[in-house]
Design a protein around this nucleic acid. Structure first.
Lengths: 193, 193
DNA sequence: TTAAATGTGTTGTATAAACGACAAATCCAA
DNA sequence: TTGGATTTGTCGTTTATACAACACATTTAA
């Protein structure tokens, strides 16, 4: 997929930084983590950090994206259709991811995290919609992906607020038929009778 | 102790190489390990290997030295005198080290390993003898260290051949008084009555 | 035996990382 | 508020690593 091989030094250093950041995140909250802390933990030079990331927020962004992508097992969804099972799995991944974050006390950065999650969801949904060869134009697919990402994220917020006792899959399942039927219309005509 | 700080990149790379070599050593025997294998495992460039080591035998040498030094806990012996306890501990470290090696099937390289062990022992003995401020000239101390290293190593060979059932400390203890008394004569006059 | 394949050790060049220094920003206690 | 201390982001220079290419040695298979 990524045609040009990246320098192994870059991969090594990025991993060192990411791992150190995640390690530090489990020790103290984000606002108390400095770039110096990270580079000390990673045993790299501070200047090298700025070679790879704009600042610590850029690192936060990319680190969270990566963790979320692992949770979502993105490649796994490349080949399947947008059905109930997939939506349930993604919802489980999102709630699971958020629970793991709340243990790490990223207080005051919920907005950033929310944006990152939605962006990642949007990317995934857009890919899947494209794969399904829907007839609508690309702009329509994009907007659909946006709405799905916001919708799913919103559901996770609602779940966290009221229903953490309920299993995520049981929480989301009742709503899915309404979503799915809308999507399926206009594509394969496999609307559930 | 080592005044000049070494570049962290060097430390990282050396560790990568060493660890990869030890990892590979537990998978197959030395004669089947190539430089390419090591650099592939370590995810470094092959040319970088030759920046740090002359060849694979040089790596073997240094890797074994390091493992042995860890076993011997060299710094620990910097401050104490050459007494029975120290000799017993060193002998235990040597036998222990050799047993761990035999599990890794370095067949055909016993000579190299033997030489490395003796060299390390010699270094340690020489340091300790110097610390004790013996009156003899340095050349005499050097030769004493050589003889002690060969002697202790020879004892470990003897132990491996006949007495692996016997505990190393019990095996070596009876001989130590003869060694110690000779060393102590001419230094502090603390010969055991 | 030869020929192909694989491994070794070296070299030249490009680039990532280390390092020290710096001004500016931010924090924090007096 | 002030002033010292810490952090941030950047820069120029030096050094370590990546990479491709090379001749040569060793192994392997035909």
């Amino acid at each position: 997929m990524t045609g040009s091989k990246t320098d192994p030094r870059v991969l090594r250093t990025r991993k060192l930084i990411m791992d150190s950041f995640i390690e530090l995140s489990s020790e103290k909250e984000f606002k108390d983590i400095t770039v110096k802390d990270i580079t000390a933990e990673a045993m790299i030079n501070r200047a090298t950090f700025y070679y790879h990331f704009e600042d610590i927020y850029d690192l936060l962004d990319k680190a969270l994206s990566e963790v979320l992508l692992i949770n979502l097992d993105c490649n796994h969804y490349q080949n399947i259709e947008l059905n109930e099972e997939m939506l349930v799995n993604i919802f489980k991944a999102v709630t699971n991811f958020q629970m793991s974050l709340s243990n790490r006390c990223h207080r005051g950065y919920e907005d950033t995290i929310a944006r990152i999650i939605r962006e990642q969801l949007e990317i995934i949904f857009y890919k899947v919609l494209l794969k399904q060869g829907l007839t609508g134009d690309m702009q329509a697919l994009k907007i659909t992906a946006v709405m799905l990402s916001w919708g799913l994220y919103g559901a996770s917020v609602e779940w966290r607020r009221n229903s953490v006792g309920v299993k995520p899959e049981e929480f989301i399942k009742p709503a899915i038929p309404y979503i799915i039927s809308r999507i399926d219309v206009g594509s394969t005509n496999e609307t559930k009778e």
